[in-house]
Design a protein around this nucleic acid. Structure first.
Lengths: 356, 356
DNA sequence: TTGAAAGCGCTAACAC
DNA sequence: GTGTTAGCGCTTTCAA
């Protein structure tokens, strides 16, 4: 007895339409060398048989898989969600599929880099937000397909990212302009050993302080564990207990910023009257909660990285002919996206000094 | 001049290892019928040539693609992110890839159902959180692969979801037990025309009210647009302006619940002293903000749905032989996951009555 | 504009 | 345990 009914093949359609397989192939791909009448007949037959071209068989001969892969540390974050939500439709519009590799921990990560499952199974790879080692990057170079680094800069390889230093600077300057002099920085300890540009945001913070002639004070840097509410309470407690407590906090992401606001208000520390808080992201929740923040657009990053991927895929065949686009044909292009200060209701001038 | 260097093939490895292609194939798939010595030789050759089996070629002959597809309305939500973050690694552990189709608007959705790009390109499809029409469901039935409905029940087809009615009931009962009698329900108007079980949560709310002998009052149901802060302000304003304002709000998701808390506190309405707020999800932010909520686990849903998919893929070949697992071999199984009340700091007894 | 034939890289019978 | 053979379903010359 036969297994599940087989899919119709191109040959089936050809038989039903009374033409040769090659003609069906041409018609299905929309090539112009098919007479309108025949094309109609083929399309009808295909519809009746519920036929779709097998990507597997096609790619065997074309050498293209029609798949673009995305490597992400997790999908459980506003950033990744937004980025892939814009990348997916873009790829579909070009007739491609989106393959996602989620590497939530070091074991998964090691296994990915050891087996390199994307090899031969995608036409390009987008690497999101990882802080890769040199070995890992070298391994990706072996993939023999375009690899684009997103939310991370990698020397000599195509990258798309926002200017985190400038963003950190903007946030800090905003607070400085409001009159704050004691400004804390809230850092998030991520559990999976990936960084999300936090190093650079801290750098921007320090840079803005330096410009204003304010010395860096590491008592003002707190670390919040992203999965533990007590760490927020502790961090806030530590800041408030300082001899000279801050009047403002810059959190490297909106989520911790929101938890700071919530924790402060619950403790009857008025925000922004007693303490200003600014985040980074412009998370959907930031508007809801009227949080001041530095906006970045992961949706734009996803889209732009996707466009770059398509471009590199296109040029992958012809690359050795004309060296028109410079020596590497855009292979080491860096695209830097802007950030934008969005002042909202959680930042204001510091309270009038009481003890000075 | 040649294009980009071609990938090594199985034949190349065979030549280098001095064996036949079939032997290489067997070795690469870990079949037991290969002598250890030969296996070692093959693996070495494969490593030297940076060889990986082409899924496309393999699937052409096995009839399996090694891909599981997920259909999602968006990735930009806590729920989807968590679900796919657990699904991905599970699929990888079984040696499969995860293909994601994001359908953020009705145009994308229509185009997906018209072209059915998953056809022939995946071994199973997981459909997340859509409220499908009958036509769409019928279309998916034509896919000739297992289709699992997640976060949605569909008659006669495998489904995995939480008991939203019971969850809504639990949230409302929690507030009732605390002594609340005027309880509002905050509904989210989603922009893409997809429902996320909100109908059923409202049902649970009404059911709990009925049990307590409290009549349903539609003045207490507000709608918040998920992308507009003013709508939150308006909703809160409307509730507070009622002749008999509520003392508690049940929001169908944590994100709007958090924005309610934030808006109320900013307006100097103490939470929970003056107004209790409970959400639904147990979003990561809920713990950070000390929000009472009804927990559901999208991670569990993703995992369980994935396991079901693998099971159905396995049984897909043998299904017609033994009808052991009931008439349909689990093809119409429904798996209902539990919800859990998590009381935190945003719910408390109502304030002592002032005017009565 | 269409058809015939060759083969993409692999697995699965079947021999040995 | 290993090799030989015959396709899987498609695209792509090349001829007509």
């Amino acid at each position: 007895m036969p297994p599940t009914q087989r899919h119709a093949t191109l040959a089936d359609v050809a038989a039903r339409a009374g033409v040769s397989p090659s003609t069906v192939s041409r018609a299905m791909r929309g090539l112009p060398t098919v007479s309108p009448e025949v094309r109609a007949r083929v399309e009808q037959a295909a519809r009746e048989l519920n036929f779709a071209v097998s990507r597997q068989a096609a790619s065997l001969v074309t050498g293209r898989t029609g798949v673009v892969a995305a490597l992400v540390p997790t999908l459980d974050s506003w950033f990744m969600g937004s980025a892939l939500s814009s990348l997916g439709p873009l790829l579909r519009a070009s007739g491609r599929e989106m393959n996602v590799y989620v590497l939530p921990d070091l074991a998964e990560r090691a296994s990915f880099f050891e087996r390199l499952p994307a090899r031969r199974n995608a036409d390009a790879l987008l690497v999101f937000g990882f802080d890769l080692t040199q070995e890992e990057t070298a391994r990706l170079d072996e993939l023999e397909m375009p690899v684009i680094y997103v939310s991370q800069h990698t020397e000599g390889r195509p990258s798309v990212y926002v200017d985190d230093v400038a963003g950190g600077c903007k946030a800090t300057r905003h607070l400085l302009h409001l009159g704050h002099r004691r400004i804390a920085f809230a850092h998030v300890a991520s559990s999976h050993g990936f960084h999300f540009s936090s190093r650079e945001r801290l750098l921007g913070y320090r840079q803005a302080l330096a410009e204003a002639g304010i010395p860096f004070d590491d008592e003002l840097v707190i670390t919040i564990a992203s999965d533990d509410r007590r760490s927020v309470l502790e961090g806030v407690g530590r800041l408030l207990a300082l001899r000279e407590p801050p009047t403002a906090v810059f959190a490297e992401h909106d989520e911790p910023a929101l938890s700071l606001v919530s924790t402060l208000r619950k403790a009857r520390v008025a925000v922004p009257e007693r303490m200003s808080v600014i985040g980074f992201d412009d998370h959907r929740m930031a508007e809801w909660a009227d949080l001041s923040t530095i906006a970045q657009s992961p949706a734009d990053m996803g889209r732009i990285a996707g466009e770059l991927a398509l471009e590199l895929i296109e040029s992958d065949g012809a690359e050795r002919d004309a060296r028109d686009g410079g020596e590497d044909g855009g292979r080491s292009r860096h695209i830097v996206l802007p950030t934008l200060l969005i002042p909202r209701g959680t930042t204001a001038p510091p309270p009038a000094p009481e003890d000075e």
